[in-house]
Nucleic acid binder design. Structure first.
Lengths: 199, 199, 199, 199
DNA sequence: GATGAATGAGGATTCATTCAT
DNA sequence: GATGAATGAATCCTCATTCAT
């Protein structure tokens, strides 16, 4: 399972009508299984069944199990990047404390939404040959944070951006795994750590 | 694979002679496979072959594949706890800055040693029914840090301990995954974050 | 695949207009796939796509994949029979040496045209329940040759016809498989063998 | 099926004891299925069942279905080469007529033994990436016949050898397919054709 | 008539685990 | 104790065929 040599791009991306519904149903079913059972629990037959379609249909849209996971990862990354872009755009001349708060909030959103899913997808990522692709998205994310920090005159903004992302991920993962419900509190603590790190 | 309903305790832990060597050889073989190929690449047949024993022998020592992984996780946890215990014992009346440095160093050690293995084992942990068991070890670790922090008069030491462990793990994982070699530098940045968090 | 229990007759044979074009397009697409990939490579979906029609349309003309192959075989047989009939008609009082040459030339024609296709179709034939049907065509072919030979006073003309057909097929197949381009030379050697056999 | 990209070499070739029995049982079972049902009828599960072993065992010896067929082809070629080598060695100063008779007999033997199997294997051969390998064996066979012909002063012995092999195969295949039982008679007619070709 | 999304039986292959030797 | 051949359930994936639109 999680064969790193698998094709990871969807076969077709039907963005309308019945097909789109099937496509989304498959992704949602896979997401639920991943949340409940982890990557080992995800089988194509189970995902199809849960989505209410046949295996054949699943394979019409995704060439492999890996492609489904890859697509979920892409969606997660895309949402995070979108959230961060919005947050960055909203900053204007806000003080750095506010900036950190908004960026952290944006970084956390998908974790707060579906913590278990987020955690599983993060863990699965290095097993997939997404590197080039996801690396690019990650780089965009990091660059965006970096530019924002730079705007506030932070030294070595690249490294700092990397570390802030890392510590945020670490704290949110740990909280999620420990069963945290109150992500506002988690966010507050992450902000404290980020501010502390920035000095 | 990674069936959460599997037995996870070694059949016997031979602490001497040829048996002990076989036992260790199997663990080491499994560790190498996990490092190179991830959890999907670990098969009992392959581990046995790499360890230079037959599958039959492997099953004499471990009742299931899960038990091998579980044992590696235990070993990692135990080492970390031992390192932290040593670090805590060495503190005496050292100032808090020194304390943070030593504790972080102890926390990081096994990551610095075998970053890929550490990462895989962390990810595998929630898939195994180790919770009770590892939770206890994690609690010990957290308690130890908590007590140390308390000694320095830190407020809400339990939560702080939890967060420090989490952000350390997050930063080290990210660095390891990004291919970091210089773990002294990583450690320095983690210390900066920890100190910042503590205020 | 190549289920011998399948229907093997076209649903309709539209001999005019758009339908005829579609019908022919499907046959030609299937032929190309068979040439390039062999029988294992032929799928109804692929054939339809290559023909520029939908699978649904394909099934409007052919009740099964087997029916497509069967039709190609029929076409090949029919062409061969037509060629042989022409050749026989042209003989008049030509000496036997000439007769052999013309008959061999007629037998070879479709091999020379599309050697790979001819070979694949020959091989597929025994897998299909064409026996009754093709056997009849083969019998006609053999009878035609037999009658011609009889006209020249050849003894045991039935057996001789059978053997001449067989050795021709064998030599041409082998040459085709070996990548022969110059089918005139192949023809010359077949003629030599045929004349030799006739004594 | 008959995926040309499959591994075609046996995994282990246990030449003794129980393993050898299993290995042979699988080959024999596959051979019987090929005889009865053709290549489409051969499934790994069926072969294993007929051989009285589990699928797992089958895959211990053969990495793919293709490897089983490839091995049967190798065996057939090897037997033919051995038969021809023996025949050639027995010729001494025998006249060419006798030589032709013995070589034809050797060429035919495996067809006479299991005509249906021989036919299926011949047809399957071009579908498998045996080319390099079998081509070598075929070349050996052709070279052997060529040398023998040369010894009798036959002109263009390479081409003649090629053609004799081809016409033999063609005639025997056709006879086998037509349900011939009396391969002595077939052999006599092949000899007639071969002598005729040689002039 | 044409379309192509959907179906699901069928078949290849893997791998944790057992057990006779 | 050790061995490794054997097992077979589990899983991925394909493709001929149908049928609602």
């Amino acid at each position: 399972m999680l064969d790193p040599k698998q094709a990871i791009f969807p076969r077709k991306q039907p963005r309308q009508g019945r097909s789109a519904a099937t496509y989304e149903a498959i992704l949602e079913a896979a997401a639920r299984i991943l949340e409940r059972e982890g990557p080992e629990g995800l089988t194509t037959n189970l995902a199809a069944e849960l989505a209410g379609v046949s295996v054949g249909s699943l394979y019409q849209y995704f060439p492999s199990k890996e492609a489904i996971i890859a697509e979920l990862i892409r969606a997660m990354r895309d949402q995070m990047l979108a959230d961060l872009t919005d947050a960055a755009a909203s900053l204007q001349d806000a003080p750095i404390n506010v900036a950190v708060e908004r960026l952290v909030a944006a970084s956390i959103r998908h974790h707060a939404d579906r913590p278990a899913l987020a955690r599983v997808l993060e863990a699965a990522q290095p097993m997939l040959p997404l590197h080039a692709e996801t690396a690019a998205r990650e780089a965009e994310i990091q660059a965006l944070i970096m530019r924002t920090l730079k705007g506030y005159g932070v030294a070595d903004p690249d490294q700092v951006a990397f570390d802030l992302i890392a510590l945020t991920k670490g704290m949110v993962d740990a909280a999620a795994q420990a069963g945290a419900q109150d992500f506002a509190a988690v966010q507050a603590r992450v902000v404290r750590a980020a501010r502390g790190y920035l000095g």
